[in-house]
Design a protein around this nucleic acid. Structure first.
Length: 108
DNA sequence: TGGCTGACTTTCG
DNA sequence: ACGAAAGCCAGCC
């Protein structure tokens, strides 16, 4: 268990620009493992301890804040996203397509 | 060591 | 458009 996968996930999440979001599947696909989408979320679970990891910028493919419940009660995922200019409605990101950031396309 | 879990995604009904 | 089920793999008892 080298944790290389986790490290890669952390780096990608750290590279997410301000006011942008991405999906677990996009990250896993960027890493070359689209079937490991759940592992990305798992990596986040370990990453939530690190303040350097903007896990709030990572949502599911639908743009829903799936992991908002896993966030600290003091700093909710939605509040952080709204602080970045992202509009959230019904636990879902508005204009998700606009704020979506695909590492495979943008980062290249 | 073995088996359950999960912050997902895709597909069929 | 909505709901339910399968697939996938690494970490954690």
């Amino acid at each position: 268990m080298d944790g290389n996968f986790f490290h890669d996930v952390y780096e990608v999440v750290r590279l997410i620009p301000f006011g942008r979001v991405t999906s677990y599947g996009a990250i896993s696909r960027y890493l070359g493992a689209k079937n490991k989408a759940r592992m990305v979320g798992w990596a986040m679970n370990s990453a939530h301890s690190l303040s350097d990891i903007p896990a709030h910028r990572v949502v599911n493919q639908q743009g829903i804040l799936s992991g908002k419940d896993h966030f600290d009660p003091d700093s909710s995922m939605q509040s952080r996203l709204e602080a970045e200019g992202i509009i959230i409605q019904n636990n879902k990101i508005r204009h998700f397509k606009k704020v979506f950031w695909d590492p495979s396309s943008e980062l290249l």
